[in-house]
Simulated scan of single mutants.
Amino acid sequence: MPSITLVEGIGVSGDAHAGTTVQHRSRVARDPSAPNLRQVHLIHGELFEHLDEVGFNVEPGSLGDNITTRGVDLLELPVGTRLRIGEATVIVTGLRNPCRQIDDLQPGLMKRLVSKDDDGHVRRLAGVMGIVARGGVVRPGDPIAVELPPLPHHPLTTV
């Protein structure tokens, strides 16, 4: 059975984005000492079903996601939510802001992941990012416990 190992304060063991400071090229160019708030990328599995319904064949992992969830409304969680998954705990830091390279996977995909709603607000559907608060092994089918932070809650913004 496949699994991933989350390392406290670092991210996914062996992942290119693992580290205490930013790892993404554009972010390193701006400030290489900035904390890495993007150690773990989680996507709701329901997104893959939605994309399939509108003609895109996207599999878990193909958008850079490390963990695929089911039944958790990731996009509506407040900043600081703790997700206990398997042996590990991930603290949600914000929304993933996908880059235009997504269209290299399938032309037009970016417009399905970032769009505007009827009120003109930008909707980002490409999942959430988090940091590893407690390391451990995560396996397919592990339950996810959601622990909301103390009030007041702050909505997710891009990180």
Rank of each mutant, 00 (worst) to 15 (best):
L95G: 07
V114F: 03
L109Q: 06
I85C: 12
R96W: 04
R112A: 05
R100V: 14
V114W: 00
V90M: 05
Q101Y: 08
G86Y: 10
G86K: 12
P98H: 07
G86W: 09
I91M: 14
I102C: 02
R112N: 08
E87A: 14
V90F: 02
R96C: 09
R96L: 09
T93E: 01
L95N: 07
I85E: 10
I91G: 08
L83M: 11
C99N: 02
T93I: 06
P98R: 05
R96F: 04
K111N: 13
R112I: 01
V114T: 07
E87V: 10
G94T: 07
P98K: 03
D104M: 09
T89L: 09
V114K: 02
N97W: 07
T89P: 10
C99A: 10
L95D: 03
R96D: 05
T89V: 15
P98I: 10
L95Y: 06
R84V: 11
E87L: 09
G108F: 01
D104F: 07
G86I: 11
S115T: 14
R112S: 06
L95M: 09
M110I: 08
L109T: 03
I102M: 05
P98L: 09
R100T: 14
R96E: 04
R100A: 15
G108T: 04
A88E: 09
A88K: 07
L109N: 00
I91Q: 13
S115L: 13
C99M: 05
E87W: 08
T89E: 15
G86C: 11
V92W: 00
S115H: 10
D103V: 03
I91A: 10
I91F: 04
I102P: 00
K111R: 15
I91N: 09
C99Q: 04
L109V: 07
R84P: 13
Q101K: 14
K111Y: 11
I85L: 12
I85F: 11
V114S: 02
L95H: 06
Q106H: 15
G108M: 02
L113V: 00
T93N: 04
V90S: 03
I102Y: 00
I85V: 15
A88C: 11
D104W: 08
R100W: 14
P107G: 03
R100C: 11
Q106K: 13
L83T: 12
A88G: 11
R82D: 15
Q106N: 13
S115R: 11
P107K: 00
I85S: 10
L113G: 01
G94S: 09
I91D: 04
L105F: 05
D104I: 06
